[in-house]
Design a protein around this nucleic acid. Structure first.
Lengths: 330, 330
DNA sequence: CTGTTAGCGCATTCAA
DNA sequence: TTGAATGCGCTAACAG
């Protein structure tokens, strides 16, 4: 059995309260300090966070809700979230909902039942009703939900697309295809809007047949790229809007012998490691994944410490890494 | 504030003990049952797992330790682990150690300090010393550590390689390259051994220059494949031994216009989705990821319920999915 | 600076 | 069946 404060107390002859105070950072007579340290080491005493939690009504654990544990974008962020929280003494319970609407609710309530002190979620179908009236702070990533008092960490998706498409336009491209995500997903809608904005701003007629909607997985990136390759009037550039679809798209182009950038220019999304591997390296929109994770974790911690802080929506900038996958079109 | 047993008790006029018993499944007078149900609903009472944990000395949470949250193989398994544990009422604290030896120990002790009821780990550098003498059950995945009383879930890595290479040999290949993992990693050693075994068994001379050691990431798969492509005497087949390196390898082959399977035959590893995307579909060794996760979780739960069970080592079979990426060599 | 005491929410005796 | 009482390990007054 693990040693308790009581054990340390009786070993040292001091009282439980004194040990507790010392362990929690209050000042103590030097002499006692040493006695306690010795006893702690000898008994291998560890603080019992359960008991502590019962007393303080805090579990020192945070729940995290993500679409899928195989989603590299999400897990990268979670990795930073976990580190940041751990440095503040929190542990992290990660739940994934496998892109399933019912599971999303179910796992949320699982976390809620677990006395977590806060939640960080990358929601897909959660609505106001699911989140209103909760007693603990919640930070949302990647999507804002109106009418609910949750902090948010977003990236400027519209601007991301805008800058990618603008870059292509400035290189002389006018026939630009976009492989976007599902129409009912917030990020996908925003990314499509940015694409349209750029075309409008540069007075390039919008060609609906250049707008493709995948479902953010590798296969759909592959399939839609095949469709693009086989188009009557093939665009001179493709802009792909997430990690997995970028891989699928490159595979398709490679397989068909469509050369990047001579036959087609290419801008991908998110997959920075992958972009470095291909030749030529891919131009790519990168999201500040580390910053997203750290920011979300910090927002949550602050909100826990001071629940009255105003709702904050942090919008982070993406950046466009320009590499050799885009050619000049005359 | 959340309602407690006490609140339900005073609302119903019954005692705390009775409510507790009912909530935990003991039989109760029908009449009271209804009263309690009503009160629970009205007060939105939820069991407090912290208090319960203090009493029972169980936290109902399991710690999970993985190399990296971006490792798709690991996270897929964890996804199944999490589901399985949740169905038994456990929550899951996932920690990743970013492939760092110090962090690996550090996060392990973080979990140990957290009153988890058990741990599931995918270890890299943990040794007997780190695991000996722990008071809670531990299940290891992917690697066995001698002299320690931990259950293990492994796959037969040697056999996996053997069957891949044997298949190539039966197709007439004799010059077969392997892209294996780091020499100090258990799975990589086993996979290399299986490769060698197959050659030996079929009396094919071992060519050391066909054995490559990457570090299990996309970039090294790409680089080593480039090396292979540029070899004086290029092998007629490549066998790549993990998920990420398989992607890197295919990218390299595609970029150099090396046709699969006409110019080179190819067998990959793990990446079943990716294998379906490429044309031709890749032949691939697949590990039973779902089964690994479920098995590990079940082993742990059983061990928690009955700590005296003998140490068990479960070795699961991989399978070889045969697709068009391997050609017959005369 | 230290010790005494009460109580966090629950499960579990033991009586009734 | 039900209830009163006790304690899990810890923190937070308060008193010394």
């Amino acid at each position: 059995m693990a040693a308790t404060l009581k054990d340390v107390a009786s070993k040292t002859g001091l009282s439980i309260a004194t040990i507790s105070k010392y362990v929690n950072g209050q000042t103590i007579k030097q002499e006692n300090k040493e006695k306690i340290d010795a006893a702690i080491k000898e008994l291998n005493f560890k603080i019992n966070y359960i008991a502590k939690g019962l007393k303080s009504n805090k579990s020192m654990t945070i729940g995290v809700l993500i679409p899928e544990l195989e989603n590299v974008f999400a897990t990268h962020i979670m990795s930073r979230v976990e580190d940041t929280l751990m440095n503040s003494g929190y542990s992290t319970i990660i739940c994934d909902y496998k892109n399933d609407t019912d599971l999303e609710r179910q796992k949320l309530s699982f976390l809620l039942n677990r006395q977590v002190d806060g939640i960080i979620a990358v929601p897909t179908h959660l609505s106001k009703d699911d989140l209103a009236g909760l007693e603990i702070p919640i930070v949302l990533i990647d999507r804002i939900i109106d009418g609910v008092n949750c902090d948010c960490v977003l990236v400027d998706n519209k601007d991301a697309s805008f800058s990618a498409v603008e870059y292509l336009i400035n290189k002389g491209h006018r026939d630009i295809a976009i492989i976007s995500g599902p129409k009912d997903v917030y990020t996908a809608r925003e990314r499509t809007l940015g694409y349209i904005d750029a075309l409008v701003q540069y007075s390039i007629p919008l060609n609906e047949s250049y707008i493709f909607h995948g479902n953010y997985d590798t296969q759909s990136g592959y399939n839609l790229t095949m469709d693009i390759i086989n188009m009557q009037k093939r665009p001179s550039a493709i802009y792909v809007t997430n990690n997995e679809m970028t891989i699928g798209s490159v595979i398709a182009l490679n397989e068909c012998g469509v050369d990047i950038p001579n036959d087609i220019s290419f801008i991908g999304f998110d997959n920075i490691d992958f972009a470095k591997v291909t030749k030529p390296n891919l131009s790519i929109i990168v999201q500040p994944r580390d910053e997203i994770g750290v920011t979300a974790a910090n927002l949550l911690i602050e909100k826990i410490h001071d629940p009255d802080t105003e709702k904050r929506v942090i919008k982070l900038k993406t950046s466009l890494i320009k590499q050799a996958s885009v050619s000049i079109r005359k």
